[in-house]
């Protein structure tokens, strides 16, 4: 079991529905965000290329945040999901410093918080909130270890990229390009 996500940059329109869905589903405090939209414009007007990406924690295979955590609050659960145990977190900021994606933040209550792939939803067989609300169906969530899953087929047959792979983190969110 290896959960991952594939996001089709050709289908994403940057509506931010995933951002709002996450904030509602996970009671993200006002002013904070666990996922976000990045727009990349390349070229010189009028010859421009646009890429829109919905970004979040990459639930990396090689996790600098888990490695640098001094208490073990940052940990990996089944399926490779990176989570934070709130009552073990001292709020030192080491994991925030160690994340190349700046995917973590300090919750106003003091502990560090981040995307959980909505593990409370996937336990019940549902998709993460961001995936389930996407109006263009540009996000796919599933088991990368299962060769017959939709996400495996997409990642294997389409051209993909990951974010900052040179940081060595082995991200598990694949952007279809």
């Amino acid at each position: 079991m290896r959960y991952g996500m594939a996001i089709d940059t050709k289908k994403c329109v940057g509506c931010s529905d995933c951002v709002v869905a996450c904030q509602l589903e996970n009671h993200v405090p006002v002013g904070y965000a666990r996922d976000w939209i990045v727009e990349v414009t390349e070229g010189i007007y009028p010859n421009l290329a646009l890429e829109i990406r919905s970004e979040r924690c990459n639930h990396c295979d090689n996790t600098p945040c888990v490695r640098t955590c001094p208490t073990g609050a940052s940990h990996i659960i089944e399926g490779g999901i990176v989570k934070v145990t709130h009552h073990e977190c001292i709020g030192c900021g080491a994991c925030i410093q160690s994340c190349p994606y700046d995917a973590r933040y300090t919750h106003p209550e003091g502990y560090v918080d981040k995307c959980t792939f909505c593990d409370h939803r996937i336990k019940n067989g549902q998709d993460p909130a961001c995936v389930s609300v996407c109006p263009t169906h540009c996000m796919y969530f599933g088991d990368l270890d299962d060769p017959n899953s939709e996400i495996s087929r997409l990642v294997n047959t389409r051209r993909t990229k990951t974010l900052a792979p040179e940081a060595g983190t082995k991200p598990q969110i694949f952007y279809l390009i």
């Binding site: 951002v19 965000a33 990045v38 727009e39 414009t41």
Partner: peptide, 20 residues
Amino acid sequence: MKEEIITSGRLNPLIDPVLN
């Protein structure tokens, strides 16, 4: 030319606009 911006308005305190 390449411009990368976060358009969903992520403004996590202490993280955005630059980590501090």
